[in-house]
Design a protein around this nucleic acid. Structure first.
Length: 574
RNA sequence: CGGGGCGUAGCGCAGUCUGGUAGCGCGCUUGGUUCGGGACCAAGAAGUCGGAGGUUCAAAUCCUCUCGCCCCGACCA
């Protein structure tokens, strides 16, 4: 592609609405433009990247035995009513009516459609197993779309669904997808972890998220420093503590803490470490107030807490609800004398000498002995895992905390959809049985963003070769110089003929502008052709991640660079 | 959905408090000089000031309503 003819509108300045690096560079580099909140145009460069990612995903899905289909984005409501999700899904589901008043939704995921597709034409165990996938635009009306391609409302996703006759077969399909996902993300050049995840609303017994490690990630994960256990903090197992997490002495004493409401304030005011405090959080569980108590330096795991309480609806109580339930404002609530159910983290079993709110405005208790002074309804593991926690899978290992961007998710579904939607088959023993399913998603557009989060510097993107919009950028430094132009034209032609994807910057711009654009766009290999070095019969070669260029012979340069590209591509397929 | 912020030329912003001819930088066009890490000079084109209504002799500026976008939080297969 000749840059002079291409639609690559690069920007010198940072757009005001972009906050994260991937968003900034995608917009500045001429990959992406916003059309509405969470809805984007992919410009030529952006679309090239997406297609590269799609190709890798297709290749590995096909290799794993899955077949590609394409389902419609518009889905009749009846299917969602049949699965029961029409009522459950909430405003994130974009619903609309056609001219006749028939209800539809724009698919945020396609379990219903695929189940319907499969059940119509599959009736025998001989037809199973099946694994069907598609790459398609999804729409989820997110409350708060943000960060460019990281969390859009309309986005491209690969979703696959497996159908098996029994659980053993389904687990085999799950494992095959798990392995394929590992290959896919590796080929995309990503540093990722497969982590154990909460199965969430979709249910099922097994679930892994594929998380790309990046500071800007929205998910908190922990990974063992010794073995390969990794999990979402919400899901990570926590070792039962050998001894109480708070140990101290003293009589139960109320002390004045007039304006100290937060753990931090109380800790500083009383000169006591946050780990000596007990944090009390009031929640509304199915309409009634319950308290969760955890150590002051911990965070509550709402999912675990919800399970411990056995509630179906749970939310942090509003200030007035806290006052109504406890008689005191948040910040001064404590377990001593509290007359709502109290759920305590395991770590607090046997806690002594702790500091808590006193259920009296402007006061905290010190010297609290939980067993002696308070009534605990139930002890359960209700805190989030964090860095430093002991690994539950190996001796001596400890958790290290990471931030992750979820680029893939595999679920074992079981019969969650096949039973209500009667997706059945006839077995050898003439029994009608529901198919056992799995579903497997990959955020295609999100991978592009995640790759940039992980591969960039102060000047722009540093694409992994496998998903770069072009493999090589050829820069003609003096397009007005006949010798330079001839050499650059020839190199462009030779590389292209050799099957290399080349962006040829033939624009009548000053060298500085071209170098800046090249760094911003982030093509992995760069060859600059200038009068100075061409006189010596040399071209200037530089990887995007190299600091300086090296001189290579102009003769045979195309073959040399084409060889490098071919060699690097070969390493992608294991 | 709760809280906060912002809508003025393609992009980034000033002007709004205190009403009085709509500005600056980048980009764009033309000419000239330049030419190895986002050049310089000169001359230009380009804006119904998000929209509607109101107050006023006069509204980007004040009032009411509305739409859009961004951030924090809650939420999330």
């Amino acid at each position: 592609m000749r840059f002079s003819r291409a639609f690559i509108p690069t920007l010198k300045e940072t757009p005001a609405d972009a906050q994260v690096v991937s968003h900034v560079y995608l917009v500045r580099g001429g990959y992406l433009r916003q059309l509405a909140a969470g809805i984007y145009n992919l410009l030529p460069l952006g679309w090239r990247v997406i297609k590269k990612i799609e190709d890798i995903v297709r290749d590995e899905m096909n290799r794993a035995g899955a077949e590609e289909v394409l389902m419609p984005a518009s889905v009749p409501a009846e299917l969602w009513q049949e699965s029961g999700r029409w009522q459950v899904y909430g405003p994130e589901l974009l619903r609309w009516k056609d001219r006749k008043g028939a209800e539809f939704c724009t698919g945020p995921t396609h379990e219903e459609v695929i189940v319907d597709m499969v059940r119509r034409d599959t009736s025998s165990y001989r037809d199973l197993p099946l694994n069907l996938y598609q790459i398609q635009s999804k729409f989820r009306d997110e409350k708060r779309p943000r960060a460019g391609l990281m969390r859009g409302r309309e986005f491209i996703m690969k979703d696959a669904y497996s159908f098996d006759r029994d659980e053993a077969g389904a687990l085999k399909a799950y494992d095959a997808m798990y392995a394929a996902y590992g290959r896919i993300f590796k080929r995309c050049g990503l540093d990722f972890r497969a982590v154990e995840a909460d199965t969430g609303a979709i249910g099922g017994s097994r679930s892994h998220e594929f998380q790309v490690l990046a500071e800007s990630g929205e998910d908190a994960i922990v990974s063992c420093d010794t073995c390969d256990y990794a999990a979402n903090v919400e899901q990570a197992e926590i070792m039962k503590p050998a001894e109480p997490g708070i140990q101290g002495a003293g009589e139960l004493t109320a002390v004045a803490t007039p304006t100290q409401k937060t753990i931090d304030d109380v800790s500083k005011f009383l000169g006591v470490a946050p780990s000596q405090l007990i944090k009390t959080l009031v929640y509304m569980a199915d309409g009634s107030a319950v308290a969760a108590i955890i150590r002051g330096d911990r965070e509550l795991n709402e999912i675990a807490f919800k399970k411990a309480v056995g509630a179906t609806q749970l939310y942090l109580a509003r200030d007035e609800e806290v006052v109504a339930a406890t008689g005191v404002a948040p910040g001064f609530v404590g377990p001593v004398g509290l007359n709502i159910p109290v759920y305590a983290d395991l770590e607090l079993e046997g806690a002594t000498g702790a500091v808590t709110g006193a259920n009296r405005a402007g006061h905290h208790n010190t010297g609290v002995d939980l067993a002696r002074d308070a009534k605990v309804t139930k002890f359960a593991s209700i805190r989030l895992a964090g860095g430093g926690d002991k690994c539950p899978r190996c001796p001596g290992g400890h958790f290290r905390p990471f931030k992750g961007i979820e680029v893939g998710h595999v679920f074992f579904l079981g019969t969650k959809y096949s039973v209500p939607m009667k997706c059945n088959f006839l077995d050898e023993d003439r029994q009608t049985k529901p198919m056992v399913m799995g579903c497997y998603g990959i955020g295609i557009t999100r991978i592009a963003a995640a790759a940039i989060e992980q591969n960039h510097d102060a000047n722009g993107i540093c694409w992994p070769l496998a998903i770069a919009p072009f493999e090589v950028e050829v820069i003609s430094l003096q397009p007005g110089d006949a010798a330079v132009k001839a050499a650059a034209d020839a190199l462009y032609a030779e590389l292209t003929a050799a099957g290399v994807e080349v962006l040829y910057d033939d624009r009548d711009e000053r060298p500085g502008a071209k170098f800046k654009d090249a760094d911003l766009i982030g093509v992995p290999l760069r060859i600059a052709i200038g009068a100075r070095s061409l006189k010596e019969g040399k071209l200037e070669f530089k990887r995007r991640t190299d600091k300086d260029a090296t001189l290579i012979a102009a003769d045979g340069a195309a073959a040399y660079v084409a060889g490098l590209v071919a060699a690097e591509k070969a390493t992608f397929r294991s």
